[in-house]
Design a protein around this nucleic acid. Structure first.
Lengths: 229, 229
DNA sequence: AAATAAATTATAAAGTTTTTATAAACTAAT
DNA sequence: ATTAGTTTATAAAAACTTTATAATTTATTT
């Protein structure tokens, strides 16, 4: 579903320019030409982002920004005429998320809008970032440190989990036992690569249907192991 | 409790300058001089904001930013040498939250740090001002600081309550004892993680039916504890 | 091409180390 | 003086490493 953006800007031609840039990118755009109708729109409709010009009739941009912020947490991008204003405005703590100086390029506007939409989305919806890896029924959750096979949890020990996670995050690559040992056990670790073999065996026992015909971690004779994605 | 900031910066003198500015404002500051140790710190400790310099040995700032973003949503402020870099970098979609150009004034740095901390706080907490958390009969009220099991109140001490609340607000995530100690007892606390173990035991005794088969706080051998939702 | 040797990996199990649980003594705070 | 919190010692559990041996695969020799 496309995102809704509200442009609050008194200069009709600039507003239309901004609208065009954003509509090309597939955003739904609405416009308000002064603070009062802008605030009205914010209260009665849902937007994903607001583009706010500082110079406005009626309420000025400062107050408006504050008032919007009291009602919603969505990103507010302030459009200002002078670069020097930015830190002055920032210092006021109005709650704007970013500042764009006129004149700006279409790509700059679009890039900033997209960046803020993405961040807001990220913060609101997934509090914990990419933590899941799924490969043919095998599911790894790196933050809960759990392994599931077709939805059913399989208990894993620390080293087993770290090793499998390393494999799953580096699929279709052969790693020697020496390399794996260094990566999982640590550079300065003393010890024998044999423990890698043993751990691979244990992991296979837990996730492979047929241990003699492994689908996930395959042996590459003389070279090491490869996790197939 | 004061906010923790991680500075990742290879130039020692700049790092110290930044640290001083921030410590004056009451922030707890840690420093890492290159990407590897920076990422290490991010993985093993909790920070509220990261100040990241682009020019670093080992991994460069771009990769590092991405890698940090894969692990956490906290604000990342990028410090860059050239103003022209900003939009280039922004275009890469690394997930940084703001860009500061060197040389910057102390007040600018502090203002931006504060602004981002405030926004992050607003977005994360404002959106869920849940004072009540309920998980399978276990009910926590963070404003009255009471714990109920199936409606019946169970007396909790301060630390026990803080620890359980932290778990309940961060479910399905493994936390090491070190991490828990930092979060609940405070960054600069001197002491032993052993007290975490003891507190977990005490909490279990109060909320678990079968202490040997905990349903809420589970032991993840070699990694820490996880609260299951 | 078959047989043998060498190298590599698989497997099982014993031994060792690490980690956590528990109880109890101690310390600090109210 | 009582309660909460921390530290310490010990027990118990789990995980990890090593070792020995078996089974494969590859290389070499006849």
């Amino acid at each position: 579903m496309s995102k809704n953006i509200l442009i609050i800007e008194d200069d009709q031609s600039i507003a239309e320019l901004e609208r065009d840039y954003l509509e090309i990118e597939g955003f739904e755009v609405e416009m308000a030409s002064e603070g009062k109708s802008g605030l009205e729109a914010v209260v009665h409709h849902h937007y994903d982002l607001i583009l706010l010009d500082l110079m406005l009739p009626n309420i000025n941009g400062f107050d408006l920004c504050k008032q919007i912020r009291e009602r919603t947490n969505i990103p507010i991008l302030m459009v200002t005429a002078k670069y020097e204003d930015i830190d002055k405005v920032r210092g006021l703590g109005l709650g704007a998320d970013d500042y764009i100086v006129k004149p700006f390029s279409p790509s700059e506007l679009v890039a900033r809008v997209k960046a803020h939409l993405a961040r807001y989305e990220r913060l609101i919806h997934n509090d914990s970032p990419k933590t899941e890896i799924t490969v043919r029924g095998l599911q790894l959750n790196t933050s809960s440190r759990q392994v599931f096979m077709n939805g059913k949890e399989i208990p894993f020990t620390t080293k087993e989990f770290d090793l499998l996670t390393f494999f799953a995050t580096h699929p279709n690559q052969v790693f020697s036992k020496e390399h794996l040992f260094e990566r999982i056990w640590g550079f300065d670790s003393i010890g024998d690569n044999a423990t890698v073999t043993v751990h691979v065996k244990k992991i296979r026992k837990k996730i492979e249907k047929d241990t003699d015909n492994p689908q996930y971690i395959q042996t590459v004779w003389g070279s090491g192991y490869r996790f197939n994605k």
